[in-house]
């Protein structure tokens, strides 16, 4: 599932899909934590997932705000268009 997210991130140029891919990757890592917690009967995995959940909520809100701004400025959702920082 992590690889699925990574491939999505690398191949899709639409910003929304990029965000979704990042979500998928976060969920993948969260699932990995829970699985690992269940396997070794530790509560840490659950705790880590709660952290990831909170972080993902913050990340999505900032990300969506960024997408809106970017859309206003560029009238596009292409990630590759945002290459003004090219060295």
């Amino acid at each position: 599932m992590f690889l699925l997210g990574l491939v999505g991130l690398l191949t899709r140029r639409n910003l929304i899909f990029t965000l979704m891919s990042i979500e998928i990757m976060l969920n993948a890592s969260g699932l990995a934590f829970i699985a690992a917690g269940a396997r070794w009967a530790q509560p840490d995995g659950q705790v880590m997932f709660l952290f990831i959940l909170a972080m993902a909520a913050a990340e999505v809100s900032i990300g969506l705000a960024f997408v809106l701004l970017f859309h206003k400025r560029q009238l596009a959702l292409d990630v590759d268009a945002a290459s003004e920082m090219r060295g």
Partner: peptide, 15 residues
């Protein structure tokens, strides 16, 4: 040489 790596593309960095 180093300048070539700074393309400004997010996906390139992610890769």
């Amino acid at each position: 040489a180093l300048r070539l790596t700074q393309t400004g593309r997010v996906r390139w960095y992610a890769t």
